[in-house]
Write a protein that binds this DNA or RNA. Structure first.
Lengths: 262, 262
DNA sequence: AACTTGCTGTGGTCCTACCACAGTGAGGTC
DNA sequence: GACCTCACTGTGGTAGGACCACAGCAAGTT
């Protein structure tokens, strides 16, 4: 049916025909340049509409790319590009093969997407390290505050495990950094607030490389590690005691302290 | 040159050839399934590497899609899908036409990308409204605290303008909602912390629809608007006085109050 | 009953062709 | 000479068709 250039069901192509024009002598009332939306964006809109209307929800399977393309009257390329965007947002997962669970499935996994986004912008110097630190503090304060009342036994067990590894004097900077990340991420997820947790995780992960470099460049890695470990223990104790406000203050001092001193 | 299936410079295609195998009788030492990375991800890695190494920075122009494809030894489709991802992350902007500034340009604009990401996940019920509210409070407290010392005269002027519009008794719920958003966003950007600002903006924008619905459904919109406006004025006064802590508390009460009461 | 084998549906990749748009510059017109 | 016109060129945008790799399933074989 499409014989070239969208003919099908997707002709919302024209967005605005409104006001103002800049062409030479023409009257500038009631005219605006006609802006065309790219086809893949229209596909995105359709998918979003399906979600909004409740016809599509997490766990559901999307039509096959070919079918979707045919149904919307666009090419498969357009559909694929829309899928790439959704994937980059952590909204879908794709896999090959046949069978019920194969293909494109709606799954809400914002974590990885956020991490990549933040890391990319840190690399681009679009946001500075100091900014990330302040954002981390704001979020992790909230994480800690909530975790003090929401954390379960399994969370505390996990935290204890991470602490034990970091206490080991033979622990390398790499291992320490990984477990440090895990410690903070565990607290974030114990908060029970998914959004705060994912954002916290993303920021901490995006800083992973930077932090590792600092740890490696440390003159006396062991004593620094010991101090950080001690602070971790204090935070954990505050959480166990259910003292959210104190935990939040400790976390703030912990994060700020590391950056301020190095 | 590529006669089908990647032949070119991008043959990192094979990721791991390591340990363990599950095939029936075969010795399970030293074998693992070969996992292939998707081509567009390899392209992404190359772009990220260029940024990391400093050969590419914000404002720079990327090679034309065709050239990049040739240089990397992949198809244009692969390059285009990588571009879609970068665009979805707010890392590039694309435009047609010729000339120096046409084509693909590295520009760090995380705001819109974040907004879409959060909105999508709110729609998917991956994160609940209450979670977004708590996250907003955490971030906007920080925004307000920083804005109290960093805001310039132009910021205060903008804030005053928004306040004036919201004070107008004839102001519609739509207009009020828009200006309310603008008010919070202006504070966020006045904080001087780009990351906090972008995240704040994203959350506020993602909630735009929800908030508008609540305002519209209000029995006595005018009195609610009047109360919100009064709170806005108090916040503004705290900012003008440079009292960050008070501004933060007011913002928290302001946000939480609205959700708690409705 | 257990294994093998081929079929089918899915995303992954590539190529090629063409369209729409925006500068650029050569050429014509006044 | 100054100005306008218009074709050219480089860019992303789109379409369509072909083939590959993979995973499940079912029929056939041992």
């Amino acid at each position: 049916m499409p014989e070239q250039a969208s003919t099908g069901a997707l002709d919302d192509t024209v967005d605005t025909v409104d006001t103002a024009d800049t062409v030479d002598g023409v009257v500038d009332a009631g005219w605006a340049p006609v802006t065309k939306a790219r086809t893949y964006e229209l596909v995105l809109d359709r998918v979003e509409a399906q979600i909004t209307s409740g016809r599509l929800r997490a766990g559901d399977r999307l039509p096959a790319e070919r079918d979707l393309a045919a149904a919307l009257g666009v090419s498969r390329v357009a559909v694929r590009e829309a899928m790439r965007v959704l994937q980059a947002m952590g909204v879908i997962t794709q896999s090959t093969g046949s069978g019920r669970d194969a293909g494109t499935v709606l799954t809400a996994a914002p974590g990885e997407a956020l991490t990549r986004l933040v890391r990319m912008h840190v690399l681009l110097a679009s946001v500075g390290t100091a900014d990330v630190v302040r954002a981390r503090i704001a979020l992790e304060r909230e994480s800690a505050r909530l975790a003090a009342t929401h954390a379960r036994d399994s969370d505390h067990a996990l935290l204890a495990e991470h602490l034990a590894v970091m206490d080991d004097p033979g622990c390398s900077p790499e291992t320490f950094n990984d477990r440090d990340t895990d410690f903070h991420v565990t607290i974030a997820h114990a908060s029970g607030n998914r959004l705060v947790a994912e954002m916290t995780t993303a920021l901490r992960n995006a800083m992973r490389g930077t932090l590792l470099e600092r740890l490696r460049g440390e003159d006396d890695f062991r004593s620094v590690a010991a101090r950080l470990a001690r602070e971790h223990h204090e935070i954990h104790e505050a959480l166990l005691a259910g003292e959210g406000a104190r935990a939040a203050d400790l976390v703030e001092a912990h994060i700020e302290g590391f950056y301020a001193r190095h």
